[in-house]
């Protein structure tokens, strides 16, 4: 397997506190991969380091074999890595349309912006239906749709999504999971964080489990579902 994203032996500190201890994962093109782990395991820190918001103390991150370790975030998005942050993080006082439009800010995405906007709006009609509204006036589910649309505007090869289902009603969760599958079918590789193992493994083909900053388990969704390790970590049993 030739990895699209490979993370090796990643050590990351937040201030004086070491969050990741030799974390690793690999994602192949076209996959949907779940990043699992209890609260505080370092899942968000891992994604934030891949997208360049944090700098690792040690370790290597490669995209298609090329190192991206330590590049600033605004350069990494140009390499084809999209990152939708936890709690959507839309620009609250910009309109929905402005939010989505900014998704294609980096030079590589400017050409063909309109065509991409139309594709994204077909996938997430809320983008045009609520286009003129300020982003903070939308419901949580709508905001998550807009955040995904904004992330897709950069035409990423890999889209990382941090807890897309957080705080959403069950009906919206199903709708969103379907949207993520649709994004994946269009050729975008997905790496997402989710605390609910059942939900995560119903969407992902494979998963990685982080515990206290270390990669402790990985495997296919089927194998992880049956794994006693997963039961121990998530159910304390």
């Amino acid at each position: 397997m030739r990895a699209l994203l490979e993370v090796r032996d990643l050590d990351v500190l937040l201030g004086d506190y070491q969050v990741l201890w030799g974390a690793r994962l690999a994602v192949a093109p076209g996959e949907i991969v779940a990043l699992l782990g209890p609260n505080g395991a370092g899942k968000s820190t891992l994604l934030n380091t891949v997208s360049g918001l944090l700098r690792p103390r040690a370790g290597a991150i490669t995209l298609d074999g090329a190192p991206i370790t330590g590049l600033p975030a605004h350069r990494i998005v140009g390499r084809g890595v999209g990152h939708v942050l936890e709690r959507r993080r839309l620009f609250p006082y910009l309109t929905v349309r402005q939010n989505v439009w900014l998704g294609a800010y980096h030079p590589g995405a400017r050409a063909g912006r309109e065509a991409q906007f139309e594709r994204v709006a077909r996938l997430f009609p809320v983008v045009t239906a609520r286009g003129a509204q300020l982003a903070h006036t939308l419901s949580g589910g709508e905001q998550q749709m807009v955040a995904l649309a904004r992330g897709l505007m950069a035409r990423p090869r890999l889209l990382m999504i941090d807890e897309p289902f957080l705080g959403l009603a069950p009906r919206v969760v199903a709708e969103l999971a379907e949207a993520i599958r649709a994004i994946n079918r269009e050729g975008v590789t997905i790496l997402f964080i989710e605390q609910n193992v059942e939900l995560a493994l119903s969407l992902a083909g494979r998963g990685y489990v982080l515990e206290s900053g270390r990669s402790v388990l990985d495997g296919t969704a089927e194998a992880l579902r049956r794994s006693p390790g997963v039961r121990r970590i998530f159910l304390g049993g």
Binding site: S51, G52, L53, P72, A73, H74, V77, G78, G82, H83, L85, R89, L90, F91, L102, G103, Y105, H106, P107, A109, R150, A154
Partner: peptide, 9 residues
Amino acid sequence: QAAALMGVD
């Protein structure tokens, strides 16, 4: 942070 992820320096 979100702006940086859009490619804004």
